[in-house]
Design a protein around this nucleic acid. Structure first.
Length: 124
RNA sequence: UAAAGCAAUCGAAUAAUCGCGCCUGAACCAAUUUCAGGUGAGGAAAGUCCGUGCAUUCAAGGACAGACAGCCGGGGAAAGCCCGGACGGCGUGAGCCGGUGGAUAGUGCCACAGAAAAUAUACUGCUAACGGCUUAAUUGAGUACGAGCGAUGGUGCAACGGUGAGUUAAGAGCUUCACCAGCGGUAUUGAGAGAUACCGGCUAGGUAAACCCCUGUCGAAUGCAAGGUUAAGUUGAGGGUUAUAAAGGCUGUCCGCCAACUUCAGAAAAAACCGCUAGAGAUUGAAAGUAAUUUCAAUACCAGACAGAUGAUUAUUUAGAAACAGAACACGGCUUAUGAGUUGCUUUAUUUU
RNA sequence: CGGGAUGUGGCGCAGCUUGGUAGCGCACCUCGCUUGGGACGAGGGGGUCGCACGUUCAAAUCGUGUCAUCCCGA
C-alpha cells in the first residue's frame, strides 16, 4: 500500500477529458451540503489506481481565489481520508469526481471534511 | 491638539505535524519509484481600456475611404503614457481637476415661452427738429403720411457688448467720457504656449463629447488554442492554367493582381515535445537633469503548470476573528478593488507661551 | 484567451438614429355590467431609464469610466 503515502501526485489524479465525460456518463451520483460526488465504473484490474478529480465551475463563483480554496479543501479532505484508511468502498471504482457547488463555498475545512466523509460512506 | 492635502512604504510573522508543481544530483534502473538539496503568485497577477515585442498569412503599386491624436516644451519603443510649464475652473488654504485647434470654410440644430433665436427692423413702440397736410393766420397748436430712431417689449440658458453719465426732437458706442468684457495691431519679454503695456476701430450669440474643416500619425488581418517539430496519411501527386461573363480570394472599396477545372490515392480520435521564459528585466551604487528619464559599474539568475502546483490543522503574537485577490507567451501604461498601520513634507482651525 | 451584444413600471418590450412630452401589451386598484365570478366597458396608480462623472440652457438619448447579465469562436 505504498501509493497511499504518495496519493494525489500527478499520476493518481483524473486527468483527460474523455475520462471525465466517461465518469459523468455513468450517472451514479450522491449529493450533500453543496458537494456532488460522481462515481465511475467498477475496476477491472485490482492493481490500477482509483483516480480522483475535483471541479468547481466558473459559474459557481466568479473569483478564482474562492474556487481554488474550495478545490483545495476538498482535495485535502480526500487525502486525509486516504491516509487514515477511511475510504470504505470507494476504491472499487476507477474514478471519482467531486463537484463543488454554491452552498459549499463559505464552509471551513472541518465542514467540508465531514461532507466528503459522508459521501464516501454512501458508496456501495 | 484636531481636521485636511501630497508623496513614499507595507501587502502578517514564528514554530510543529501532514502534503503539492518544477529543476538539479544520487540510488535502483526499461519506465516508474525513492532519497537529498534548491526554488515556487501580485500590487494590483484583475478589468482587457490603450500601446509594443513575437508568430503566421496576405500585400507590385496607387487612389479614395477609414482609424487615432489635438495648449507649449521635454522624456519614451510606443501609448486614451509620464514629467515640467501655460491658460481656465474648484477650494479659506496646502492643493486638486480639465478630450484645452477652428463657430470669419460651409451645412444643421437652438423645444416651450417670446415681437424676434441669427440676412433683425416684419411687429409693438418713441420723436412734431425737417418736408407734407389741417387749423390759426409771424412765434403757436394738432396730425406719425414722408422721414428719423433702435431706447421701450410679462419671455428665455441665451436678445446683435455691460453699467453710469453727457449729448438729443426722440435716441443710440454716438468714438463724447469713466470703468469693465471681447476683437485686431504694435512694442517689450519668454525656448514656446503665453504675459505685460499702448493704440485702433466699434462688436463678433451658443453648439464641433452635431456633421464637418485644419494640422499630425498609421501596411492589413489574425492572436502562443499564434506557430513549429515528432510517427503514419496533420493532404499529396500528375495534367490543365487561352478569352469573356458571373460567383470566390487578396485590405474596407475601386483600379489592379491571384485563382478557377480535372484524374488518382487518402482523410477515426487522441498524444508528446518545442515555442516557454536572460528580460525595452531585477537589486545596489555613482553621475547628468527641476523632474520624467538617461548613462555607467557591480551583483545574482528569481514560477513555468496543462483537470492546471503555494494548501490543511494546531499553538503563540500584532488586532481572540487579516482586506482586495491567483501567473498561463512576455513587457510598458491606464482604470478599478483593497484591512490594520508606518514615515516624510505641507495647509487650516483652536489653545498655550 | 479572443470577439459581440443587452440593462427602461411586477413581467415582456418600444422610444435613443435626429437631445426638450418616458409610451405599449399583460398584470394591479376603483367603478359599471352580472344573482356571483370571468369576459367586456370606463377611469386610475406605479418607472433613481443599471451606477458614477462629464458635454449641453437641457441627457433614457451624446462622451468616458464602471457594475451586472447573456451569447459566440477556438
Amino acid at each position: 500500500m505504498l501509493f497511499w503515502e504518495n496519493m494525489l501526485k500527478k499520476q493518481y489524479r483524473l486527468k483527460n477529458k474523455s475520462a471525465f465525460s466517461a465518469t459523468y456518463r455513468v450517472k451514479k451520483s450522491f449529493h450533500k451540503g453543496g458537494i456532488t460526488l460522481f462515481a465511475g465504473l467498477l475496476k477491472k484490474d485490482e492493481n490500477s489506481f482509483t483516480k480522483a478529480g475535483f471541479v468547481v465551475s466558473k459559474k459557481t463563483h466568479k473569483r478564482a481565489v474562492k474556487r481554488n480554496r474550495l478545490k483545495r479543501l476538498m482535495r485535502e479532505s480526500y487525502r486525509l481520508a486516504l491516509k487514515s484508511g477511511k475510504l470504505y468502498n470507494s476504491q472499487k471504482y476507477m474514478s471519482l469526481i467531486f463537484v463543488g457547488g454554491e452552498h459549499a463555498l463559505g464552509k471551513n475545512f472541518h465542514e467540508v471534511q465531514n461532507i466528503i466523509k459522508n459521501l464516501l460512506q454512501r458508496l456501495e
